[in-house]
């Protein structure tokens, strides 16, 4: 009894804390540009229209802006995610036909909590309960590529249109690539022990009160922002350097529209590179400003975030090499098509 009243008290306290934080957040966010200018021109007393001033101003404005957006969004996404779990996603996917299954798996991939270190148990759990290989892949492609960190950074540095384009094209790639892999019937390239595995009954879900969900939202902020803030800083610092010092249109010759080969080349370079969205997106945003084409940049981002060497090494435990190469090939082709498409449209 005393235990219950204690946790209830905690929940109310966190809700009050929350109410206080939101107006403070809004006030700060609204006045960030003014505060930055005050700091750069009045306190640091830097001369206007100099490269260094521009770089410093960019850094001092963008870092708090992105971190504030991340904190707010991850908090809410953290709460929403307590209503989703791989176990529930699996249940929702059971017995779905191929195409419907792919669409659902890719969409659920966005909201289901996922960490690449859990990729193997998740893969095994899906396959073991009879979810088709292609549907499982749709989930495995969407989950790391489309996540709240990427969406916040795209929204903060590019605007909502680019963020939306990224989500929609990412979903398209996850759905079609998963569908293609399903149609190719590649079960023979999954390690045989996977299909012999017998998983135990799933343990009961933890019962969560709303107060507990809020607490988990705070924990998500602590964990994710605590991990990515350094990448955000480095990414924006590099971005600030590019912003202030690299001449306009510098990137146009090799990442611009006229260089058709830049799309496949960016994807090829992006596959082995591994960075999370927080590190790569600020750099790409600076590249676009200097003349890199949107499609090429989008393709580069997607291949860096969505396909990575460490993930392939983890997946090697359950997939034979030909399937890993097929996976990279199909997803890479999808990304290249998206890159060309956007270079053509914009």
């Amino acid at each position: 009894m005393s235990d219950n009243s204690h946790s209830a008290g905690l929940a109310y306290r966190s809700r009050y804390l929350l109410l206080l934080l939101i107006p403070v957040w809004l006030l700060l966010y609204k006045n960030l540009q003014w505060l930055t200018d005050k700091f750069v021109f009045d306190i640091l007393d830097l001369p206007a229209n100099k490269h260094l001033t521009e770089a410093v101003r960019f850094f001092i404005f963008e870092v708090p802006k992105v971190l504030m957006l991340l904190t707010l969004i991850i908090f809410f996404v953290g709460i929403i995610r307590t209503y989703f779990s791989p176990e529930r996603t699996r249940k929702a996917l059971e017995g779905k036909s191929l195409f419907t299954g792919n669409v659902m798996a890719a969409s659920l991939g966005i909201v289901t909590p996922f960490c690449s270190c859990s990729a193997i148990p998740l893969f095994l759990g899906f396959i073991e309960s009879g979810i088709p290989l292609g549907v499982t892949f749709s989930f495995l492609i969407a989950a790391p590529m489309i996540n709240e960190v990427a969406i916040v950074l795209l929204f903060g540095l590019f605007g909502w249109k680019t963020a939306l384009i990224y989500v929609v094209t990412g979903l398209f790639i996850a759905i079609t690539a998963g569908w293609v892999i399903g149609r190719l019937h590649l079960e023979k390239w999954v390690e045989p022990w996977v299909y012999e595995l017998k998983a135990g009954d799933h343990p009961e879900d933890e019962k969560l009160t709303f107060g507990k969900r809020i607490k988990l939202g705070f924990e998500a902020v602590k964990e994710i922002v605590g991990k990515v803030w350094i990448y955000v800083m480095i990414g924006i610092a590099v971005g600030a350097g590019v912003h202030g010092y690299v001449p306009q249109d510098f990137m146009a010759s090799f990442m611009g529209k006229s260089a058709w080969y830049s799309v496949p080349l960016s994807v090829l370079i992006g596959i082995p590179l591994y960075s999370n969205a927080a590190g790569i997106i600020p750099i790409v945003s600076a590249l676009i400003e200097k003349g890199a084409a949107l499609g090429t940049s989008l393709a580069f981002m997607m291949s860096v975030i969505g396909l990575s060497l460490p993930e392939m090494i983890i997946l090697r435990k359950v997939l034979k090499l030909p399937l890993i190469f097929t996976f990279i090939g199909v997803v890479g082709t999808g990304i290249i098509i998206v890159g060309f498409l956007f270079n053509y449209i914009f």
Binding site: P86, C117, S118, I120, P121, L122, L124, G200, P203
Partner: peptide, 13 residues
């Protein structure tokens, strides 16, 4: 051991 882990029905570590 992943096989033993799966025996507990856990999908998230």
């Amino acid at each position: 051991d992943i096989v033993k882990i799966m025996g507990y029905g856990v999908m998230r570590t």
